[in-house]
Design a protein around this nucleic acid. Structure first.
Length: 215
DNA sequence: GCGACAG
DNA sequence: ATCTTGTCGC
């Protein structure tokens, strides 16, 4: 990557350019492989992990780890600039090509419709969506208490994602499409990856991997 | 001016 | 993200 923004102004400009490259498409309803991406921090270092799981049985088929540095300060709405370089480095080390990227954060549920998942999707041109633990933008009606219940996440009058209950009686997650996949498929895949816990198995495995990397 | 604000 | 005991609610 030649250029990387060093100021908020440059990051906003870069976001505006890349945003036009987001592609809307149904995406894979039944991918063969799914990737989980996550990053852990330790002072000024960061550990990035990308894990590829078999969608059929959730077994781990590949893991790529990278130790690097945050490439930008944390600024809500510009979060991707912080982790994208290290995550791309990790993605390049994979030997198994994932059919979809599942990111820890948001996709289009972003103030300018270009969160981490959309950003990584555009740069890799792989289908990508985000599953966030908390809200960045949007309003939503209370979600039903059963696993599978969902409520539209609406921002400025437009549906940018879904608040999805992955486990009955447990706090819901925020799912949003990023690139080359739609919200329904993103939710369906998310439910498939949460047979036992609130967060997708992909993010759980990636979280464990990058955390171990730094300890 | 006072909150809200992915990880 | 990360630092962390007690504590609120069921």
């Amino acid at each position: 990557m030649e250029f990387w923004p060093r100021t908020e102004e440059e990051a906003l400009a870069a976001q505006e350019v890349l945003r036009s490259r987001v592609v809307s498409a149904p995406g894979p309803a039944s991918p063969v492989t799914v990737a989980g991406l996550d990053v852990a921090y330790d002072g000024d270092r960061l550990g990035a992990a990308v894990v590829v799981l078999d969608y059929a049985d959730l077994s781990v088929r590949d893991t790529a780890l990278v130790i690097g540095r945050p490439a930008f300060p944390y600024v809500p709405g510009l979060f991707a600039f912080r982790e994208v370089p290290s995550l791309l480095d990790a993605l390049e080390k994979l030997t198994v090509r994932p059919d979809v990227l599942i990111c820890d954060g948001h996709g289009l549920a972003h103030p300018r419709r270009f969160g981490l998942a959309a950003h990584l999707g555009v740069l890799t041109d792989l289908p990508a969506f985000g599953v966030g633990k908390t809200r960045l933008v949007g309003e939503f009606a209370p979600v039903g208490a059963e696993r599978g219940d969902r409520s539209p996440l609406v921002d400025a009058g437009e549906t940018v994602g879904a608040v999805l209950r992955t486990r009955s009686g447990v706090k819901p997650v925020f799912v949003s499409a990023g690139h080359r996949i739609d919200l329904d498929n993103a939710c369906a895949i998310t439910l498939r990856l949460t047979p036992k816990f609130r967060l997708p198995e992909t993010t759980r495995v990636a979280d464990r991997a990058c955390r171990d990397l730094l300890s």
